Simulated scan of single mutants.
Amino acid sequence: MIHLIVGPAAHGVTAYALQLADALGTVDIVREETFTEAPLPDGPIHVAFTDHLFGAGPDAAVETLLARVGERPLSVSFHDVPQPEEGAERFARRAAAYQRLAAAADVVGTNSEHEARFFDAPSSVIRLPIPQVHSEFDPEPGTVGVLGYLYPGKGHEYLIAALDGSGYRLRFLGAVSKGHEAWAEELARHAEITGWLSDDELAAEMGRIEIPVCAHRHFSASGSLMTWLGAGRTVLATDSDYTREIDAWLPGRITRVSGSWRDAVDAFQPEVLDPPRYGWADVATAWEDAWHSAGLE
Rank of each mutant, 00 (worst) to 15 (best):
A97Y: 02
E71S: 14
T36P: 01
A92T: 03
A60L: 10
E85C: 02
L74V: 01
E85W: 11
G43R: 05
V62W: 02
A48I: 11
R100S: 11
L40C: 07
A48G: 04
D59Q: 13
E37V: 01
P39F: 15
I45D: 11
E86A: 10
T64F: 08
A104Y: 07
E71G: 14
F78L: 04
A104Q: 10
S77M: 11
P84A: 09
T34I: 11
D51I: 09
P39K: 11
D80G: 09
P39Y: 15
A103I: 02
A88V: 03
R90E: 15
D59T: 12
E86G: 08
T34Y: 02
A105V: 12
E33I: 15
R100F: 10
F91C: 12
G70D: 00
V76K: 00
A103R: 09
A67Q: 14
G43I: 12
A56H: 15
Y98E: 05
A104C: 06
Q99E: 02
Y98L: 02
A67C: 10
R31V: 02
V76A: 03
S77C: 13
D59H: 14
V62G: 00
F35Q: 14
P82V: 03
R94W: 06
A105R: 08
A56I: 09
G57N: 06
T64C: 03
H79V: 08
L40Y: 12
A61H: 07
R94S: 05
R93G: 06
E71C: 13
P44K: 06
E37W: 04
A60N: 04
V76F: 04
A48D: 08
A38F: 02
F78G: 11
D106M: 15
